[in-house]
């Protein structure tokens, strides 16, 4: 394990031409260097996501350029844009179809909370009502740099994941769910309006 090797000793060994690593480091390095996003966009944030993947900002520098048109081959879901209530069940279904380990970036004000459409009858007030989100990016829409930053934050998060122990990564813990119930179309709203196992907003106290 990386924790068992003294960092000073490791860098000293590297200077001498001996490269010491651990299974965990190797495993996380491999996963974080090749994150395949699911290829779908919902609104104007998707245009920024396209710009991020294109040559000027070049997501390929971080290993995320292979956008897959099938959830079965994707590691990362970038929820880029407004999630309407009509679209929400499909998003959850796509998430369920992705193989573990899987990550979610909630891109832009709409995907976080509903954004400017929050008071509308037709827009979901945040995708985190139904699926767990790893990184949130504020902005309307966020610039490509912000998406790159979120991508690097996600890589940092993957780097820190443990292979063993009680705090091991979710996909290595059989007790952690990897699929979440798909909301149904109700008479007035989606049913349920949020998944209480996932959605736990901070309590606000106000007189």
């Amino acid at each position: 394990m990386s924790g068992q090797i003294d960092e000073g000793l490791r860098s000293e060994l590297q200077r001498q031409g001996i490269w010491v690593t651990s299974m965990q480091d190797l495993y996380n390095w491999g996963r974080r260097s090749s994150i395949w996003p699911l290829q779908f966009g919902l609104a104007c944030c998707a245009i920024e996501m396209i710009a991020t993947a294109a040559s000027r900002y070049d997501l390929a520098r971080f290993g995320g350029e292979i956008f897959r048109p099938s959830p079965r081959q994707a590691d990362l879901m970038i929820v880029a844009g407004t999630v309407t209530k009509k679209m929400a069940p499909q998003i959850v279904r796509l998430y369920n179809q992705m193989p573990d380990p899987k990550y979610v970036i909630s891109m832009g004000a709409c995907a976080i909370s509903g954004g400017p459409f929050k008071q509308g009858y037709n827009v979901l007030k945040g995708i985190d009502r139904y699926i767990p989100v790893d990184v949130y990016i504020p902005g309307c829409p966020p610039r490509p740099e912000a998406l790159l930053h979120a991508f690097m934050e996600l890589q940092r998060k993957i780097d820190d994941q443990k292979l063993t122990g009680t705090d091991r990564a979710e996909h290595l813990n059989a007790a952690q769910p990897s699929e979440f119930p798909v909301p149904a179309f109700g008479a007035h709203d989606l049913e349920p309006a949020a998944n209480p196992d996932v959605f736990d907003p901070p309590k606000i106290e106000r007189t």
Partner: peptide
Amino acid sequence: LMWDEFVDHPMRKDYREPDD
């Protein structure tokens, strides 16, 4: 625009959106 199971008509002035 809305799903088939929906019963309300949201642009009516007396429509009240769900309380979430």
